[in-house]
Design a binder for these strands. Sequence first.
DNA 1: CGAATAAATCATATCATCATGATGTTATCC
DNA 2: GGATAACATCATGATGATATGATTTATTCG
Lengths: 145, 145
Amino acid sequence: MISRTASIALRALLCIAERQELGPVSAKVLARNLELPRNYLSKTLYRLVQGGLLQTTRGRGGGYLLTAPAAEVSLGRIVDVIDPDGSQRRCLLGRPECSDSSPCAMHGRWCEVREAIDRFFAETTVGDLLRPPAPDHRGRSSIHT
Amino acid sequence: MISRTASIALRALLCIAERQELGPVSAKVLARNLELPRNYLSKTLYRLVQGGLLQTTRGRGGGYLLTAPAAEVSLGRIVDVIDPDGSQRRCLLGRPECSDSSPCAMHGRWCEVREAIDRFFAETTVGDLLRPPAPDHRGRSSIHT
DNA sequence: CGAATAAATCATATCATCATGATGTTATCC
DNA sequence: GGATAACATCATGATGATATGATTTATTCG
């Protein structure tokens, strides 16, 4: 669905968003929290910096901060920075020019699903995920407010 | 979403399903139709044979046939044979044990989308794709018994 | 300044996927 | 039985994603 690196990027951004009120979050802290090698993480974080999602400060007390409020950062923007060829999720049969006017055999049926995926990534923000997961009918949790 | 090889497998099965009334479909014919190197295709087809989706006959006039009616072969079965680790599509944050009782931050929101994807692959069959996707035409698509 | 901290970068290493070409095996037809 | 057709398998290479470790650059603090 998304690459492992994109998955790491999502986790890293969430972790930074949770902690940045206390100041920049260092790669060291992130590596410890995400249980990942520091340098590998560092490279992924740098891609997010270049993608405009993070800003950094070096030296003592330095680290990473979001460039925009968490509520304004969609998951899609994060994934697009790491997996730039989002057209992975396009035609299931691999046709580069699959479209409504030139559809493959699955086009009609798959489009609905694909649009649901696109909506998820476009509409869900980092901010949405900071608040405890929306209680739903699933799992039958009997927690009342 | 699915690997390139899985995409090729889908195309190959569709092609075989379309042509098998005339007898087994050879790798040579498939390679020509799908514009793919014969040997590479051959290896992928063999995986489908091992997965129980295709049967083969060798020698003159030989080739590949579906083992079951097209209407009974779901796309999910095909993809599972080629990309056995379907858990790719599971937790977006890569948690192996993400579930309703132990959800990640995205679990609730993502599950709905994931289930739509799972339904698509489980419910769409090769047979569904053989008939043209019923565009604006009336009459052909109303085949509800 | 010099030491410490932290990000940025470089050089490799590893691994799975994708792909090609050559060869082996099985079945059919004459 | 020999030629041919067709799938099965092997060996190898190319590519990109993943991962590790070492080094360099920038900043802060004493």
